[in-house]
Design a protein around this nucleic acid. Structure first.
Lengths: 351, 351
DNA sequence: AATTGGCACTCGGTTAATTAGAGTGCTAAC
DNA sequence: GTTAGCACTCTAATTAACCGAGTGCCAATT
């Protein structure tokens, strides 16, 4: 029994070697790979027949499968998973490539939105797949200043500036017209009371004051507080999400269905679903790989997602990565995503 | 000679009738239509042989063509053009449909950007093609108020509000740090001097003052004026462009090439080219139809664009329309685009 | 003179049959 | 445990045959 198990693991070690070779080959060629080709591919000098035996074992373990009796083998999802988790040997990028990425990101303009854009463009350009970058809106985005401008027809333009210089604006509807002076007064009050405070705190205080003082509070102020509350609410909702190079996926889609691709594209423009998906990887450490079929989301069938969170000043502020066919060159994509995440973090640190 | 010409025109009238029938049929079925089917389609009680003669004439005129000897006829580009220009009978929408469009647009949220978004969604939804809406940035967007906020590291956040309530913001880099007070003073000056004035005029005055007074002017003010100038410049550049339902085109793309579709999608995300294309129709009156092949743009081969400018307060402010296969149901699409343009104008009038 | 029926002809698409080849599984030998 | 050999399977590509839709033209008809 013991002997069996030892021999078992020996076989498994070699089997894993073959699995790796098979997947790498399949990723390169895209076609079922047979025993003959595999025999030549690996360094070991073994006959096709031997390989066949091993392949039969691998098939039994559910790591590979054959499309039909007389075709080679193709990795299954679990096969890919094993490959990704413990088999692949990432090729680190050379200095030159790293430098190229850094240069391209620095060149990407000053506004933080533009940097994200060029990051996703970069990812899609280098990998020939779709690049995505998200930026979470961190709650500690403190209140800095608010401003109200009267428009016509009982509408007021409210402008809210946060501590780190983001500007939100919104048109609010009020019950009556307000004069410039009234609005200024309200804004002044808010600014004095809340400048530098946490946004959520501002929100709660505003609501509280509204309740406490609804009776004797000046109507202007009441309105102003409501507005501020609304604005704060609104500013929480937004979340940045940038995608580039979707059309790269079309090449690979000749293989997969066209209907599939359409759903994927719709999800991209809809954004919400993808965003939710990527948020899962915020907490993860380093590069994460995610095979479409593994998670109910059937619009990702045939796809894989390679992600990495990126951080500025020790704090995770977003996720970036690429989306492509499950049959992608992980050994190259992984370091690209990894490095890009690090560089993006560094670039953003200098605002 | 005269007799010949008379008989010619007689033939042509009937020929046009057949051309119309053929195109309508082709649009419905998508397949070459033969003499037999066409004979049944038209009210006239004629034999296929007669139709064949007419078709031969039409082919000679370059209005139809046959993919191969034993297929029916298919309209050519010039055939489509004639159909569009003088043959088609638009079916006006009934009240119910119009009301549905209006409702959907009104429901589209308050921000003007959102309305454009829902307009293009609406167009794509109703026509099952891609819907586009552009909004030109009209120059007479007057200066209203400017505000400067100091950030760290010699950066200043400038916020510019225009008369109609649009908010532009931008981070400016300065040669030294400014205090809050300095910035307020500069902003006050600008606001007093320029509130309500034409943006281009502001720009010029700013430049002029910079030249006149570079020596004795306070450095803060100089910086402020530069900033204001930059901001005004920046605010001119932007142009809104919204597209929805691109993926609808994928259905029709099974026919046309996939490479073609990819280029089209890239053009959509690139925006510039499409924008330039649509701008041509700003000056046009009413619905315009544009067949891809007619204008060098080879990425529009196989496509047609149906557009209409829309206006608020007698003034054209943008173009909207749909992009789809040349083989589209013009008789239905045209009134949809027409009505949507009118309703969008009306909705925007109430800001 | 326009219209029509008839007829030979063309050509694309579909089906069926054949073939070639790649690859497997199994068995027996090493 | 490995390998060679062999029978077997299944796909993909090629070829052949055929069907049918549609045309063009000519002669007959109105």
């Amino acid at each position: 029994m013991e002997k069996k198990s030892v021999s078992d693991t020996v076989v498994n070690e070699r089997a894993q070697h073959f699995l790796k070779a098979l997947i790498e080959r399949y990723i390169r060629e895209g076609q079922p790979v047979g025993s003959r080709t595999l025999a030549k591919d690996t360094g070991l000098d073994l006959s096709p027949a031997t390989i066949r035996n091993v392949m039969a074992d691998l098939e039994e373990m559910g790591l590979v499968s054959s499309p039909h009796t007389s075709a080679g083998r193709v990795p299954t999802i679990t096969g890919y998973r094993m490959f990704i988790d413990s088999l692949l040997t990432v090729q680190n990028l050379n200095k030159q490539e790293v430098e190229k990425i850094r240069k391209e990101l620095l060149l990407g303009g000053e506004e933080s939105g533009d940097v994200l854009k060029s990051a996703s463009k970069l990812l899609s350009g280098v990998t020939h797949m779709a690049g995505v970058v998200t930026l979470i809106r961190r709650d500690k985005n403190n209140f800095r200043q608010i401003e109200f401008l009267p428009l016509s027809d009982r509408r007021v333009l409210a402008i809210l500036v946060t501590e780190d210089g983001e500007v939100h604006n919104r048109i609010l509807h009020t019950h009556r017209d307000f004069s410039r002076a009234e609005l200024d007064q309200a804004a002044n009050f808010l600014n004095k009371s809340f400048a530098g405070h946490d946004m959520e705190m501002v929100r709660q205080r505003v609501l509280q004051q509204l309740n406490d003082a609804r009776d004797h509070f000046d109507q202007v102020m009441t309105q102003a507080l409501t507005m501020a509350g609304e604005l704060v609410n609104a500013s929480e909702a937004k979340e940045d999400f940038v995608i580039a190079g979707q059309t790269n996926l079309m090449e690979f889609a000749e293989l997969s269905g066209l209907e599939q691709l359409r759903k994927l594209f719709d999800a991209f423009t809809e954004k919400r679903e993808i965003l939710h998906l990527l948020d899962q990887f915020l907490d993860a450490e380093g590069v994460q790989i995610f095979i479409g079929e593994e998670s109910g989301y059937q619009l990702l069938n045939g796809c894989s997602v390679v992600t990495a969170p990126y951080q500025v000043n020790e704090e995770v502020v977003g996720v970036l990565g690429v989306i492509g066919p499950t049959r992608m060159n992980y050994e190259r994509v992984i370091p690209v995503v990894d490095i890009t995440a690090k560089i993006l973090g560094a670039v953003l640190k200098n605002h």
